[in-house]
Write a protein that binds this DNA or RNA. Structure first.
Length: 618
RNA sequence: GCGCCCGUAGCUCAGCCGGAUAGAGCAGCGGUCUUCUAAACCGCCGGUCGCAGGUUCGAAUCCUGCCGGGCGCGCCA
């Protein structure tokens, strides 16, 4: 049952003549302030303007015509022409009674379920995951759960980066710097070390190369003095002499070239590289699996770029045959209106790009799953790439699929610059989780020393991981944000811990009262709304469905966290102000127990949609 | 140069397909545990919504310009 939708239908029926009933009803929304009732219809001002009428008169007319029974009486005209709706307590109480018997807490499946593929997480398997990877994973997982709860068929897809240059880098490292003992002890750690080593060696090419090129350009123009001055300015902070800088760049370029060659050999089917790749992969996947298990993330499809590799020549050939792709400067490219630069589907050296791989994946997904929507939960910096891919996919024939880049903002460091994984200065995802769990453990030990060791450990894990996820999910996904470890592991204020704590309190009261939520649900006691805190809490409980609608429509988990935080807040106030077990009568007691059960279930349900667990006590 | 995004309280952020007096958390200050979990509750302090125009009955929200910051832009993924 969705209150907002019911009100909208009622107002649509009462819309002034000569007006779009739809637009009029869309102007119904939750009130911004309790003094203006519970919901408000704001369409009369604009309607009056369009019809050349007095807005207050028109509002009064609509108010007398609209039938909101049994939810509310006639709305009240206020201000310049607002219509304020105040729900009737008896109706709220009755609706809560129905909710008590409803396992789905009022959430109804959508009328037209879709098949939705969500591409998220998608890490490079060879690199250890760091804090930058958490957003896609956590947001994608939550969106999957939200859409599935709405009755859609959701396919969770982890498009692994298992075929790119990073393997060339590892292969190069393996052949030149392998520590066999280290690999035996900790394969993933050693592979990561080799990757970082290669990346570090290649870095001067990016950092110093362009600067050096500018200096050399001046020299070739016959301006040695200016070149020397520029060199001093550009390289002063590096402490490198001219020959050192040239040597560093030259070495970096050599390593980069070598890594590219290793990659090319792998792609070309070189037996040695292929064998090594097959040897590395299980270790990489196992390490990933460990993290996903800890995060409670599970994919339906986990196919990497290597899987699509075989399809790529076909994709390019088909694009060419259909006149979509063309040859330009030795590469095969597609010009699109999406961006000024064309999209490269095959490089001059014959290698394919991740754009080609994305196209192959679209083809595969359409043939395999016949998806209605394809969502990509990926960093907003790749917006142009997806614009191109979607554009090309549509002209390629996949025009009935709804593509969407579910972008999210960049994680910034304390200096407000994008969080980079500088070698040696990486906040690994694992260590972030460990730190959060350790902090939670301290708090548990302090507050709940009486609980058994094993239970405290379990609570710390649930609370710590929940804190990290919530810190990310409660943010508007589009905003960049400053990574702050203290905030990520905080357990006061608007945090998962606060919600988990509220949940634990709803459960604790049943233990104390020597009854169970199940017993209350079976008994279905009448609900009484007598106290303002009960009314506010009760109304919030009825608003889960409309909240989920918004979160799903905007693909924004923070809509849900806001709602849950508000709900927990209202519960905490209710808990302070309304005695439950010591209520004035058994009827009141049972009514309040029912509110506790509904709150607990709603919190647990909502947190589950965020991928966050709860504990029975903490 | 072209394109995209962002400037809201001391800090971190909600609110942004127009609605009434702009919200939260943290930080600060002050109250509340012999009574259902104080990981909590209640109160106070705190904002020319970057600046200037425009559209509108109504602008943090839409449009234009400017200032400040970030990102992307043919062979990395």
């Amino acid at each position: 049952m969705n209150i907002l939708n019911r009100l909208r239908r009622a107002f649509a029926d009462a819309a002034p003549e000569g007006l779009s009933a739809d637009a009029f009803s869309q102007a119904v929304r939750p009130s911004t302030d309790p003094r203006f009732g519970d919901y408000q219809a704001n369409g009369c001002m604009a309607a009056a303007k369009a019809l050349g009428r007095n807005p207050r008169e028109l509002a009064a007319e609509v108010a007398s015509r609209v039938d909101l029974s049994p939810m509310a009486g006639p709305p009240e005209v206020a201000g310049p022409g607002f219509l304020n709706v105040r729900l009737i307590e008896d109706w709220i109480a009755a609706a809560l009674g129905d909710l008590l018997a409803d396992d789905r807490l009022g959430v109804e499946p959508v009328d037209d379920p879709e098949t939705i593929i969500i591409d998220y997480s998608s890490p490079n398997v060879a690199k250890p995951m760091h804090v930058g990877h958490i957003r896609s994973t956590v947001i994608g997982e939550s969106l999957s759960r939200i859409l599935a709860a709405q009755g859609h068929k959701v396919i969770r897809d982890n498009h692994l980066g298992d075929w790119g240059l990073q393997f060339g880098q590892i292969l190069w490292g393996w052949k030149h710097h392998l520590d066999r003992d280290a690999f035996e002890r900790d394969p993933v750690g050693e592979l990561a070390r080799l990757y970082r080593l290669a990346a570090a060696k290649m870095k001067p090419a990016e950092d110093l190369g362009p600067r050096l090129a500018k200096v050399q350009a001046l020299e070739s123009q016959g301006k040695p003095d200016e070149a020397a001055a520029l060199f001093a300015r550009l390289f002063g902070d590096s402490g490198l002499s001219r020959p050192q800088a040239e040597a560093a760049v030259a070495e970096a370029l050599a390593v980069a070239e070598a890594a590219r060659e290793e990659t090319a050999k792998l792609h070309a089917g070189d037996p040695e590289n292929r064998k090594l790749w097959e040897r590395f992969m299980p270790h990489c996947l196992e390490a990933l699996e460990g993290i996903y298990q800890r995060l409670g993330v599970k994919f339906d499809v986990q196919l990497g770029e290597s899987f699509y590799d075989a399809m790529l020549p076909e994709v390019v050939a088909d694009l060419k045959a259909k006149g979509i792709a063309q040859t330009s400067a030795g590469a095969t490219v597609v010009f699109t209106e999406a961006t000024s630069a064309p999209m490269i589907v095959q490089k001059r050296d014959g290698a394919f790009t991740y754009a080609t791989s994305d196209l192959a994946k679209i083809k595969y997904c359409e043939e395999e799953f016949d998806a209605d929507r394809l969502l990509y939960v990926v960093d907003s910096r790749q917006a142009d790439h997806f614009k191109q891919v979607f554009d090309v996919a549509r002209s390629w024939g996949y025009s009935s699929v709804d593509f969407e880049h579910v972008a999210f903002g960049t994680i910034l460091g304390r200096d407000r610059k994008p969080f980079k994984t500088r070698s040696g200065d990486v906040v690994g995802l694992e260590s972030l989780l460990d730190e959060a769990v350790a902090k939670a453990r301290e708090v548990v030990d302090e507050n709940s020393a009486h609980l058994p060791e094993q239970e405290r450990a379990r609570i710390a894990e649930v609370v710590g991981i929940g804190a990290v996820k919530y810190a990310d999910l409660s943010q508007n996904r589009l905003s960049d944000y400053v990574f702050d470890l203290d905030k990520m592991v905080a357990m006061n204020g608007n945090t998962a811990t606060y919600l988990q704590y509220a949940y634990a309190r709803t459960r604790s009261i049943f233990r104390k009262g020597e009854t169970t939520p199940e017993a209350i649900r079976r008994a279905r006691p009448p609900i009484f709304i007598t106290h303002p805190a009960e009314r506010a809490l009760g109304l919030a409980l009825l608003r889960l469905p409309e909240t989920l609608d918004v979160a799903a429509a905007e693909l924004k988990p923070n809509v849900l966290t806001d709602y849950l935080f508000g709900l927990a807040n209202l519960f905490s106030s209710f808990f302070e102000e309304c005695p439950v077990l010591k209520a004035e009568s058994p009827e009141r007691r049972d009514s309040r127990l029912a509110l506790c059960d509904l709150t607990g279930r709603t919190l647990a349900f909502g947190l589950d949609l965020l991928g966050i667990e709860v504990v029975e006590r903490m």
